[in-house]
Design a protein around this nucleic acid. Structure first.
Lengths: 332, 332
DNA sequence: ATGAAAGCGCTAACAG
DNA sequence: CTGTTAGCGCTTTCAT
């Protein structure tokens, strides 16, 4: 492998000059620069970035901790991350953690071991030990999408409570009063906030909360399918279901139809995320559109700010209620 | 940041001893080992892997070139890659190339610049220039899923021709003789092979090929939707459609229903990939199941073999026809 | 404008 | 078993 020394010999200059000709062309004389560039070309020289990084103590790699890459919402977030990182000369180390905290901690240590400069965490968990970054220290991390309440770092998120409230209000405005909810994982702040929003809407409309209508889920189509089954079987069946993800909504619709019921005639269904399939489901899904790619892009921009020692504010991104055919007037 | 020297001072030994105590504990005396480990703990020492890598000339990073991470099939492949890489102590540098050759070349140069040890390419394109790896040299690359005909490296793929033939034969066996096909990108070997399989099946059943029934697509639901529109509008409408991806099949079904036609009563639809949504579409999708995660796992295993200088054979993974409700007997 | 030389943190001869 | 020493390839003072 050709290194800078080879190039220096070939050009008849010192290694320092080669380095300078490449990094700050303006401070070497045009003639030397020419010579160097010719030698670089001739030798097919590519700087060993491992050495460069080692020297400069920066890797230009970002670690992304994603709960599951199989979820199309996260896939979109990652696209955004990937794109923004590339533009700024950073690589992306993708870690599919499946929500496993040990794994997240392990991956975060890529930063302690200087394999990466910072972390984008897409789940509400701090993967850094007190030890690695004692108190006062600024964590090289951004927490995005699902955010810790007392995050030790800057965050980008949606106003999940408001969004869930709006989705629920949409159903209420269609005349629904018995509205089921298929939730996300138990201890997720995201789920808690969305449930809050759901309850806010009910309260505002003077509808009493019925715990039976609250079903567990894990964002997969399968869990939506199963929880829909429970809801359908209820003595007093809901006329609408609000799902915390489109994937669950699609699973739920599948189960509802299997039971011989129609969407939205018998049961309206609303989702959350606005994934690509939402438009192609039957019926097309009413949902809350999240700016998934923007989450990724913003997280990268913020993380780089942090890495460069600047102050960063938390960010709340906008959502939109997209009304499609899966929700309709209640006609019991 | 604490480094090996600090630890050495703290333990009252040389840096070499610290290094040894950590890398090959058996060749240092138990007492020194203890001292060193205590010092390591006390200093909160983590080896600077950048330095280790720099020294050992290995990064333990793999580059993955993926056409689009938004496709759930690739998401599964990546999960497999990710998992296998982690088990073997490798990190994954994910590159969403959108099929852009310049981008792929650029990312592949992470290897030339020693940011990564090898490449897993999920598209039929060689991202390495002749210059970087002259002829004889063994490319540190595995080509998976969509494979070049004369790949310059080991490959893992499906027998796409046989799989497409089987899917088509399934439709023929149901009495269909007018079978549309929604294809993948124009110049993809994958598309060519699948079309071959489709034609193989037609020939074997003495059905003449009708070019009108061949529609373009790009694996997205949207393209399936559009091509279905074309097929429906045909004077002699097909009674079945074979799509090269489930995402297109889902788009196609959506369009067919919009036209007031029923699946499978009026038109049967078959897909390819068996993504998670295939079971939850209405009707559930008949499709060719690919072992997506296995592609990822095998590619990693093979790449590491190559990196360690061993010989590797090409691999063909098995597929399965999964028959669900979207295909049924032809009754014109 | 250029060169000589130090050193980033670590490992691996080579001595002892 | 342990210490000394020489780099890995590069950037960056400090001289010239």
């Amino acid at each position: 492998m050709t290194n800078i020394r080879k190039v220096a010999e070939l050009a008849g200059v010192s290694v320092a000059t080669v380095s300078r000709a490449l990094k700050s062309p303006d401070i070497v004389s045009p003639t030397t620069r020419e010579k160097v560039l010719k030698a670089v070309d001739q030798a097919g020289y590519k700087p060993n970035l491992m050495a460069v990084q080692f020297r400069s103590q920066r890797t230009y790699n970002l670690v992304v901790l994603v709960p599951t890459i199989a979820n199309t919402f996260f896939a979109r977030v990652i696209s955004g991350i990937q794109e923004a990182a590339q533009e700024r000369g950073y690589g992306v180390l993708l870690c599919n953690t499946l929500g496993n905290e040990a794994m997240e901690t392990q991956y975060a240590s890529l930063v302690s071991t200087r394999q990466a400069d910072g972390v984008i965490q897409l789940r509400a968990f701090n993967p850094f030990s007190e030890k690695a970054f004692p108190d006062g220290a600024v964590l090289p991390m951004i927490n995005a999408c699902e955010v810790l309440d007392d995050a030790p770092c800057p965050t980008v998120k949606l106003d999940n409570r408001a969004a869930a409230r709006e989705a629920t209000e949409h159903l209420i405005s269609l005349g629904h009063r018995r509205i089921g909810m298929i939730k996300g994982p138990r201890r997720s702040p995201l789920t808690r906030d969305r449930q809050q929003g759901y309850q806010d809407a009910l309260s505002a409309a003077d509808i009493a909360l019925d715990e039976c209508l609250l079903c567990p889920g894990d964002f997969t189509p399968r869990s939506g399918y199963q929880s829909a089954e429970t809801l359908i079987a209820l003595a007093e069946r809901p006329t609408a279901i609000f799902c915390e993800s489109d994937e669950m909504a699609i699973g739920a619709i599948s189960r509802i139809k299997e039971a011989g019921l129609r969407v939205p005639e018998d049961i309206s269904v609303a989702g959350f995320d606005d994934i690509a399939f939402a438009s192609y489901s039957d019926p097309p899904l009413t949902t809350i559109a999240q700016p998934a790619e923007a989450f990724g892009r913003e997280a990268v921009a913020m993380l780089i700010e942090v890495l460069e020692g600047r102050q960063v504010d938390n960010l709340v991104l906008p959502y939109t209620l997209v009304s499609r055919a899966s929700t309709a007037t209640c006609r019991p």
